[in-house]
Amino acid sequence: MVDADLRRTRAVAFGRSGLSRFVPQTTVLNADDVARALKRMAHEIVEANSGLDDVIIIGLERGGVPIAQAIATALEQIEDRTVEFGTIDISFYRDDISTSPVLPEVTKMPYSVTEKHVVLCDDVLFTGRTVRSALDAVTDFGRPKSIQLAVMVDRGHRELPIRPDYVGKNLPTSRSESVRVSLDGVELGVTEAIEAGTRKDDL
């Protein structure tokens, strides 16, 4: 099976839009900067929650998962204990599945969220629509004591009343730009269509 490859791609047979490619223009943060920002965010999470009791870290597929894992690892080092960790795919909670036919990942939620402080982690906060979907998804798994939001990059242009609690980097952008985040760094660039009819992945 070619699942591993497929998981990184958009639907082809069931896709509505062509493929697109990110073209980097400026490096905003390098790998060390990202590591430092993640460590600082981890300290802020410990401080805000007076430790890690009842804290669960949840990464949003796909970009948020490596960020969440890095934060969870940092938290475990800071407090010298294990941290509950899960991942959520918000595909089934979107208000616009047709604009971005990405194949869903398997949600992995081995822990209850009821009476927990949930820290949602994502790579980029943009319109806020992904986070809105994620709030619906999380509450399907129980009733958390609180839900907090950690993002590596806040690029502005919110369309919903959603704000982050922990931010790696505030990055003013124009709507036409794209941001790529990984543990190797943060880059600003543009997304261009490989085939005609491509729509930009805004969320």
Partner: peptide, 26 residues
């Protein structure tokens, strides 16, 4: 391609089906 995409999507649906409340607003 179509078969593979259905198989991959079905993995995510299997997780939904295993939840205490097996329902999503998709």
């Amino acid at each position: 391609d179509g078969i593979d995409e259905i198989m991959v999507t079905a993995d995510a649906m299997a997780e939904v089906s295993a939840r205490p409340i097996p329902k999503v607003p998709a």
